[in-house]
Amino acid sequence: MGQARALMGLSAQLDEELDFREGDVITIIGVPEPGWFEGELEGRRGIFPEGFVELLGPL
C-alpha cells in the first residue's frame, strides 16, 4: 500500500501491536479501522495508531 516514517517510538502494549523506533520506515499493509494502520517492519507485523507516523506518499 505505501510506507510511513515513525515520528516517535512506540512500545507495543498488546500482542497485535507493532513496536518501532523514531525514524523507522514501516511498510503499510492495511487500514484495519479508522485511525489505525497495519504495518510490517523487519519481518514483524502489527497495528499502530496513525498519529505516530507520517506517510511517505499516497496509500
Rank of each mutant, 00 (worst) to 15 (best):
M1T: 05
M1A: 06
M1F: 10
M1S: 06
M1C: 09
M1E: 09
G2F: 06
G2Q: 10
G2N: 15
G2Y: 06
G2T: 14
G2A: 07
G2E: 04
G2R: 08
Q3Y: 13
Q3I: 12
Q3T: 14
A4I: 02
A4M: 01
A4E: 07
A4V: 08
A4Y: 04
A4W: 00
R5H: 04
R5W: 00
R5A: 01
R5P: 00
R5N: 03
R5M: 11
R5T: 07
R5C: 05
R5Y: 07
R5Q: 06
R5L: 09
A6H: 00
A6P: 03
A6F: 08
A6K: 04
A6W: 07
A6Q: 01
A6C: 05
A6V: 06
A6Y: 00
A6T: 00
L7W: 02
L7Y: 04
L7K: 14
L7E: 00
M8Q: 15
M8A: 13
M8T: 14
G9M: 03
G9Y: 04
G9C: 13
G9P: 13
G9W: 01
L10C: 14
L10H: 15
L10Y: 15
L10N: 15
L10G: 08
L10F: 15
L10P: 08
S11H: 11
S11Y: 13
S11M: 10
S11L: 07
S11D: 15
S11A: 12
A12S: 15
A12P: 14
A12N: 13
A12D: 05
A12T: 15
A12C: 08
Q13A: 12
Q13N: 13
Q13Y: 07
Q13R: 13
L14K: 15
L14E: 14
L14F: 15
L14C: 15
L14R: 15
L14H: 15
L14T: 15
L14G: 15
L14V: 14
L14D: 15
D15G: 11
D15V: 09
D15A: 12
D15R: 11
D15N: 07
E16Q: 12
E16H: 13
E16S: 14
E16Y: 14
E16K: 12
E16P: 09
E16T: 13
E16D: 13
E17Q: 13
E17H: 15
E17R: 12
E17I: 11
E17A: 09
E17L: 11
E17P: 00
E17G: 12
E17T: 11
L18A: 06
L18S: 03
L18Y: 04
L18D: 06
L18Q: 07
D19E: 15
D19G: 13
D19Q: 14
D19S: 15
D19Y: 11
F20S: 02
F20W: 03
F20E: 07
F20V: 02
F20Y: 02
R21E: 13
R21C: 13
R21V: 14
R21K: 14
R21Q: 13
E22P: 11
E22V: 12
E22R: 12
E22I: 11
E22N: 06
G23T: 02
G23V: 04
G23A: 06
G23W: 01
G23I: 01
G23Q: 03
D24A: 06
D24N: 05
D24P: 02
D24K: 00
D24C: 07
D24G: 03
V25K: 09
V25Q: 06
V25H: 10
V25P: 05
V25G: 04
V25A: 07
V25E: 10
V25I: 14
V25W: 06
V25N: 05
V25S: 04
I26D: 04
I26V: 08
I26Q: 02
I26Y: 03
T27A: 09
T27E: 15
T27R: 10
T27G: 04
T27Y: 07
I28R: 02
I28V: 10
I29G: 08
I29D: 07
I29C: 05
I29F: 07
I29P: 03
I29R: 10
G30H: 03
G30S: 11
G30V: 00
G30M: 03
G30A: 11
G30I: 04
G30R: 13
V31S: 12
V31C: 12
V31D: 06
V31N: 14
V31Q: 15
V31W: 00
V31A: 11
P32F: 04
P32D: 00
P32V: 08
P32W: 03
P32Q: 02
P32N: 00
P32E: 06
E33V: 02
P34I: 05
P34V: 11
P34Y: 06
P34L: 09
P34D: 13
G35L: 01
G35T: 01
G35E: 00
G35K: 09
G35C: 02
G35H: 04
G35F: 05
W36K: 11
W36C: 08
W36L: 13
W36I: 15
W36P: 05
W36N: 00
W36H: 09
F37L: 13
F37T: 02
F37A: 01
F37R: 05
F37W: 04
F37S: 03
F37G: 02
F37Y: 14
E38D: 06
E38M: 14
E38Y: 13
E38K: 12
E38A: 10
G39K: 01
G39R: 01
G39Q: 00
G39V: 01
G39W: 04
G39P: 07
G39C: 04
G39I: 01
G39L: 03
E40D: 03
E40T: 14
E40A: 09
L41N: 06
L41A: 01
L41E: 01
L41R: 11
L41P: 07
L41I: 14
L41W: 05
L41Q: 02
L41M: 04
L41F: 13
E42Q: 11
E42A: 12
E42M: 14
E42G: 12
E42F: 06
E42Y: 10
E42C: 11
G43N: 08
G43Q: 04
G43E: 10
G43K: 04
G43S: 06
G43H: 04
G43A: 05
R44K: 13
R44Q: 09
R44E: 06
R44L: 01
R44G: 03
R44W: 00
R44C: 02
R45Y: 06
R45F: 06
R45V: 10
R45D: 03
R45A: 05
R45M: 00
R45G: 01
R45N: 07
R45E: 07
G46K: 01
G46N: 03
G46S: 03
G46Q: 01
G46W: 02
I47E: 05
I47D: 01
I47T: 10
I47Q: 11
I47G: 00
F48E: 04
F48Q: 09
F48M: 05
F48L: 11
F48R: 00
P49V: 00
P49F: 04
P49T: 03
P49W: 02
P49H: 09
P49C: 00
P49M: 08
P49N: 08
E50Q: 13
E50G: 07
E50F: 10
E50M: 09
E50W: 09
G51A: 15
G51R: 15
G51M: 14
G51Q: 07
F52Y: 15
F52V: 10
F52S: 14
F52G: 08
F52M: 14
F52C: 14
F52W: 07
F52T: 14
F52P: 03
V53A: 03
V53P: 00
V53K: 04
V53I: 04
V53R: 01
E54F: 01
E54A: 07
E54G: 03
E54V: 05
E54P: 01
L55G: 02
L55K: 02
L55I: 10
L56C: 10
L56G: 05
L56A: 06
L56W: 00
L56M: 10
L56V: 10
L56Q: 10
L56N: 08
G57W: 06
G57H: 10
G57E: 15
G57D: 09
G57N: 10
G57K: 12
G57M: 11
P58W: 05
P58T: 09
P58S: 08
P58L: 04
P58R: 05
P58M: 04
P58I: 02
L59K: 11
L59A: 08
L59H: 14
L59G: 11
